[in-house]
């Protein structure tokens, strides 16, 4: 149904919209409204109803080019099928985690996978160093190596309870529960009100919630 290269949402079966809504915190109308957002994002560079990495970059950073490890990880986590593009169903699945009503365990898990750059099942010190270096470059901030190491040492002293030099998922969970502000990025308040943000869904709707 969501092979959107051929089908408009109008041709989608209600049951598929209902399935997506059923498996997510979204109502059917909210899924339809998110389809309006998906259409906009997926046609911004290549008009094929699939979100390519360049389109994700353009949406998040208003520039289609430039390498960034965070963008790569966000894209990989959205791209469940690992086929190099984000389809509508994958878009809904990933955004579900960012819904204010999504279970905190899902947010903790998503953030862990985001920061586990090498996907080893642990957040390693080198990965944290790499991510900190990336954000410093992105924001034109400079910190002395001494202060940088102090920040990372302190973070690991707090998070790495078994002192093995890496943060396991259980350690991450305990750590973010102690510092819930670290999950701030995992919630998008906009998702509570998508039908207002994308009212044009009403022209294609299959159902009145």
């Amino acid at each position: 149904c969501f092979d959107c290269r051929q089908n408009s949402p109008r041709t989608c079966q209600y049951v598929d919209l209902a399935r997506l809504a059923h498996d997510s915190p979204f109502s059917v109308n909210e899924v339809e409204a998110l389809y309006e957002l998906f259409k906009k994002l997926s046609c911004s560079i290549i008009d094929d109803m699939l979100i390519h990495k360049e389109e994700l970059r353009l949406a998040l950073f208003q520039a289609p080019y430039g390498e960034n490890i965070f963008l790569d990880r966000v894209f990989d986590l959205f791209d469940e099928k690992k086929n190099g593009v984000i389809e509508f169903e994958e878009f809904i699945h990933a955004l579900s985690v960012f819904h204010p009503n999504a279970p905190i365990e899902e947010k903790i898990d998503f953030a862990f996978r985001l920061y586990d750059l090498r996907q080893t099942g642990f957040i390693e010190r080198e990965e944290v160093q790499q991510m900190v270096a990336t954000i410093l470059m992105e924001s034109d901030m400079t910190l002395s190596d001494e202060l940088l190491n102090l920040i990372i040492d302190k973070t690991f002293a707090d998070a790495d309870s078994d002192k093995d030099g890496k943060i396991s998922k259980a350690e991450w969970k305990a750590y973010v529960l102690k510092h819930p502000s670290l999950l701030k990025n995992m919630t998008l308040p906009y998702l509570k009100d998508v039908t207002t943000a994308f009212p044009s869904f009403i022209f294609n709707t299959e159902v009145e919630d």
Binding site: A59, L60, V74, I151, H179
Partner: peptide
């Protein structure tokens, strides 16, 4: 007590400041 070391930001707080991790960009175009 008596320490003069500055308040140290958590590394993940710093990392969380990346624009690429702020998906609200989807809704702000």
């Amino acid at each position: 007590k008596g320490s003069d070391s500055p308040t140290i930001i958590n590394a993940f707080q710093l990392i969380g400041m990346s624009s690429f991790l702020d998906l609200s960009g989807f809704f702000e175009q």
